[in-house]
């Protein structure tokens, strides 16, 4: 498998009057073309900071990112603008990602225009194609995004993410706010898009059950570091880190015999900061 992205010893601190946090503290990993790497970690482990660094929304203090064979961090100005469409992101807070009065047309037309994907005359047919691609119809194009259901909005967010034909999509808790039925359909859609277009995903979540369903490999993050990484099945079956074991134990399981009171009591002692 060809390497699409490699991250070397990436660091980012946030320093304020109240505290000094090493949000990302020496991260290294790589991602192949058409591969999904699941990044698992509890709140505060640095997952979302990693996403923002990859998108160049914030700059790291140290370390390197090689993307599509070139130095991603040295890109500036118009070079960066031209390449930005190659890495896209889907967030958990779907509504917050759109302008309050935006229609589906606006949401999808902007990336097509900004990244110069298709000629102006072909824009509406491209929007219709994208909508169909994510399981919506062209009739949705004129609807305000805020009037769509949660599942439909997340489909629009995915359509917008793939509009600029990226090679990498970063999914930050992209299905965490959805009901189980919707969640499963969105995950199936993502897997299907990957199979057809060879997109790579960096799938960030605290939910190992979700990550396990879609990830070829897993990386467990804790306090800004990757504490273990490997094949998804191996990590789920034989976690070597405390953070990995805690994430696995936390996945709710159907308990047909009623509540397992004793095991729950055991897991209670808190290790929150």
């Amino acid at each position: 498998m060809k390497t699409l992205l490699s991250v070397e010893n990436l660091r980012k601190r946030f320093v304020s009057a109240e505290r000094d946090v090493a949000a990302v503290d020496g991260l290294s990993f790589s991602l192949g073309t058409g591969e999904t790497l699941g990044i698992a970690g509890a709140s505060g482990s640095g997952k979302s900071t990693l996403a923002r660094l990859l998108l160049r929304l914030i700059e790291p203090d140290a370390g390197g990112i090689t993307f599509e064979g070139s130095d991603w961090l040295s890109l500036k100005g118009s070079d960066l603008r031209h390449r930005r469409g190659r890495i896209q992101m889907v967030f958990q807070d779907i509504l917050g990602a759109f302008h309050p009065s935006a229609t589906v047309n606006d949401a999808l037309g902007d990336p097509l225009r900004i990244h110069g994907i298709v000629a102006k005359a072909e824009r509406s047919s491209e929007i219709a194609r994208l909508l169909e691609r994510v399981g919506l119809s062209s009739a949705h194009a004129t609807r305000p995004v805020r009037e769509l259901s949660g599942g439909q909005r997340q489909r629009v967010a995915i359509a917008r993410a793939i509009a600029s034909r990226p090679s990498l999509v970063v999914l930050d808790e992209a299905v965490s706010a959805l009901d189980v039925q919707l969640r499963n359909r969105i995950l199936e859609l993502l897997v299907e898009l990957q199979r057809e277009n060879g997109i790579s995903y960096l799938f960030i979540s605290h939910d190992l059950a979700v990550l396990r369903a879609v990830s070829h490999r897993l990386a467990i993050m804790d306090a800004g570091r990757i504490v273990e990484t490997g094949n998804t099945t191996d990590i789920i079956n034989h976690p070597s880190s405390a953070a990995g074991r805690a994430l696995i134990a936390a996945v709710p399981r159907l308990t047909p015999g009623g509540r397992p009171t004793n095991t729950m009591q055991k897991s209670e002692p808190t290790h929150e900061p």
């Binding site: 059950a209 369903a213 879609v214």
Partner: peptide, 9 residues
């Protein structure tokens, strides 16, 4: 789905 369900990939 949990850690025993069939993966999608």
């Amino acid at each position: 789905f949990d850690l025993t369900s069939a993966p999608l990939i």
